[in-house]
């Protein structure tokens, strides 16, 4: 190991005992104007989005355009196959009509929308991610059990080693730790 390599710190982790405490801390951090921070809880907490000031996720746009792509693909595919490339008259119907093509297009709409949602979600969350500094922390393992954690990254422009720690203390955390990268 090269001792000259400076070890970067990742962020401050503050532990809370109840969802209410974490929620109040989240509100005060939101009001203080932090941007690179997160709250980790063992289960979904209603109202946390509002307390953190998180807006509606843009993942819906991926879903919408995925759906549009699916619909168009279905129509083009069926038109190409039945109305253009290999024409067969079935039941005296027109070679191509959006009516009989619709059920397939509708299903492709759903399929592509679902794919786009999944891929969009992974993209926005920068997943898959094989390493995360928080996972080194022993105490953080309790997040899957009964503890609530607020993490403020050192990369946040508002971050200051003293002030941010003080903010978390005032918010009621009894255990605050600096996590290394």
């Amino acid at each position: 190991m090269n001792a000259n390599v400076s070890i970067q710190s990742y962020g401050l982790v503050a532990e809370f005992d109840t969802p209410g405490d974490a929620m109040r801390a989240a509100s005060s951090i939101r009001d203080a104007g932090f941007r690179k921070w997160d709250v980790h809880t063992p289960f979904p907490v209603h109202g946390l989005d509002a307390a953190m000031g998180i807006k509606n996720s843009p993942v819906g746009w991926f879903t919408f355009f995925g759906g549009c792509t699916g619909y168009t693909t279905g129509m083009l595919m069926i038109w190409f196959m039945n109305g253009f490339d290999y024409k067969i008259v079935v039941g005296g119907k027109p070679l191509f009509s959006p009516f009989y093509a619709f059920p397939v297009c509708y299903e492709l709409t759903i399929l592509f929308a679902a794919f786009a949602t999944l891929i969009g979600m992974c993209f926005l969350n920068r997943l898959p991610r094989l390493y995360h500094p928080l996972l080194k922390n022993r105490r953080f393992a309790a997040v899957t059990h009964d503890k609530f954690f607020v993490v403020i990254e050192t990369a946040d422009p508002k971050y200051s080693p003293v002030e941010t720690r003080k903010l978390l203390e005032t918010a009621g955390s009894r255990h605050i730790e600096l996590i290394e990268e």
Binding site: G91, G92, K93, F99, Y100, F102, P103
Partner: peptide, 12 residues
């Protein structure tokens, strides 16, 4: 409504 139309259209 689509289903009603579609079935009737299809069966002719």
């Amino acid at each position: 409504h689509f289903s009603q139309y579609f079935l009737i259209w299809n069966a002719a």
